[in-house]
Design a protein around this nucleic acid. Structure first.
Length: 440
RNA sequence: GGUCCUGUAGAGCAGUUUGGAGUGCUCGCCACCCUGUCAAGGUGGAGGUCGCGGGUUCAAGUCCCGUCAGGACCGCCA
């Protein structure tokens, strides 16, 4: 074992079984105490898991029994194999040192395998609630998802960029943005890195960003947040939006495989079924999707500029039946509802070269080809009755020459929510910010 | 922004329809008991202005009005 200044170095709970017969030092939170007449069991929790500590000395038994759960302690004792111990190993003859003040007990039981508390209670008590293995697990999956996204982006030679989150004008006209005071000038929280990532295609050709975006929209649902984490990418020299869709496929495939590799424990704990990402994700044109819905359901959405959530759910079921895929691209959304930088379909100009990726019934990614000619931007803004003036910094990129390009954005919390089957996106957001919640 | 639902002990819930003393359940907490527990078990106990304000009534957790808080769905979005 390792020593420093003559004392055992701290090891993690998962390592104790490798040190049977040796003195070990572990530290963590007092997860649960069970006191019997002649013996007291203390379960200690660290970032790897749980380890049982057994005390038979009356003074120590009394001390352990009086310590509130969640108090941080350090234990030095003998790693002992015992078939009766959870995991077959425990720490005997311990000495216990408190590293924190006695903890205030959590409002609900952290040590139980299932969480009894409701979502508002969990969110109000996030500091301690997130310690529960089942509440923590989605964020291990989230971290692995981001690692997978980065892995795909780096493999495909994208450059990692960081763009301003305080901006001088709204990214997309008509959007609800948070206004704030910037040294006496009006500023806004960035609703998306859209303008900057496009601009940076002119510098790096391929860029990606993982960062927060802010939406001051008044919707109040289980799948919306006022701040969420956006996984953005943008690439130049595309033929059309299908080149972007191919990159989305690579990103999602690496996200799923990295979750399998790096968050296996969380996946198992939550019983997550990881989806297969087909080599080619099935794709349907918006117009064909509407025809399909009109033909095979009671509703006729033809003429609507967008798909309703119920339609997205139906299409996902259809993709599962038809292609065995939990993912489905819907491409060619009407230009009418798309932002001004959207590139039209050259064959059918009322439709756009844009797409959504649906996953398990929910819109997960939006992307597409963008306009790249300066003259097209001026025309698009003029058609919407907007002045180019507020967009001067953005339009400069196109004035100075930009290649055909496109990109996408993926909502991280939504991805993890769909993956884990969470019924509310707040279960997959550490400290949600929404219409009502600004703390903790 | 619209529609609907819910506020009862630290947590999760019954009880409200048909008004009658805070009536109760599961867990936690406290005390004691206990053959190695592992979501331990046993016995006993504490803990409630029934979200808040007003009204009706002899009497309100229960009925009415208002208000605040939380949740679900829709619209919109990722």
């Amino acid at each position: 074992m390792s020593f420093r200044c003559g004392v055992a170095m701290r090891i993690l709970s998962s390592q104790v079984s490798k040190h049977v017969g040796e003195e070990v030092r572990v530290a963590g939170w007092l997860h649960r105490v069970r006191a019997l007449k002649k013996v007291t069991f203390a379960v200690l929790r660290d970032r790897e898991g749980l380890i049982q500590v057994i005390a038979a000395e009356p003074g120590l038994m009394q001390r352990l029994a009086e310590l509130p759960e969640e108090t941080v302690i350090e234990v030095v004792g003998t790693a002992t194999a015992n078939p009766q111990a959870p995991g077959g190993v425990e720490i005997t003859s311990p000495s216990v040192t408190e590293l924190s003040d006695p903890a205030v007990p959590p409002p609900f039981d952290i040590y139980r395998p299932v969480v009894s508390a409701s979502l508002p209670t969990v969110l109000d008590n996030a500091a301690v609630a997130l310690r529960h293995p089942r509440l923590r697990a989605p964020f291990e999956i989230s971290a692995a998802s981001v690692a997978g996204f980065r892995r795909a982006m780096e493999r495909l030679d994208f450059t990692d960029v960081h763009t301003p989150k305080v901006v001088s004008s709204a990214t997309e006209s008509g959007a609800n943005v948070f206004a704030l005071d910037w040294f006496g000038r009006k500023a806004y929280l960035a609703q998306s890195p859209q303008f900057y990532k496009q601009t940076l295609v002119g510098v790096f050709e391929r860029v990606y960003e993982v960062g927060p975006v802010f939406r001051a929209e008044p919707h109040d649902t289980a799948r919306h947040l006022a701040q969420y984490t956006s996984l953005d990418a943008e690439l130049g020299f595309v033929t059309d939006h299908r080149d972007v869709m191919a990159v989305v496929r690579e990103a999602v495939a690496d996200m799923v495989s990295t979750v399998a590799e790096r968050a296996a424990g969380a996946v198992e704990l939550l019983g997550v079924e990881l989806p297969d990402v087909p080599a080619e994700i099935p794709s349907i044109h918006f117009a064909d999707a509407q025809e399909l819905l009109a033909r095979e359901t009671d509703e006729d959405p033809r003429g609507e500029p967008d798909l309703a959530p119920a339609h997205e759910r139906w299409l996902c079921d259809w993709a599962m039946r038809e292609y065995g895929s939990q993912f489905l691209f819907v491409s060619g959304y009407p230009m009418a509802k798309r932002p001004f930088y959207t590139h039209p379909d050259p064959e059918r100009p009322q439709y756009s070269n844009s797409f959504d990726l649906l996953f398990r019934g929910l819109e997960l990614v939006t992307g597409g080809q963008r306009l790249h000619r300066h003259s097209d931007y001026l025309a698009a803004l003029a058609a919407r009755g907007e002045s180019p003036e507020p967009y001067a910094g953005y339009l400069a990129a196109f004035a100075h020459g930009m290649p055909p390009h496109g990109g996408f954005a993926l909502g991280l919390e939504r991805f993890v929510a769909r993956l884990t089957g969470a019924d509310n996106i707040r279960w997959t957001t550490l400290f949600p910010r929404d219409l009502h919640r600004l703390a903790p």
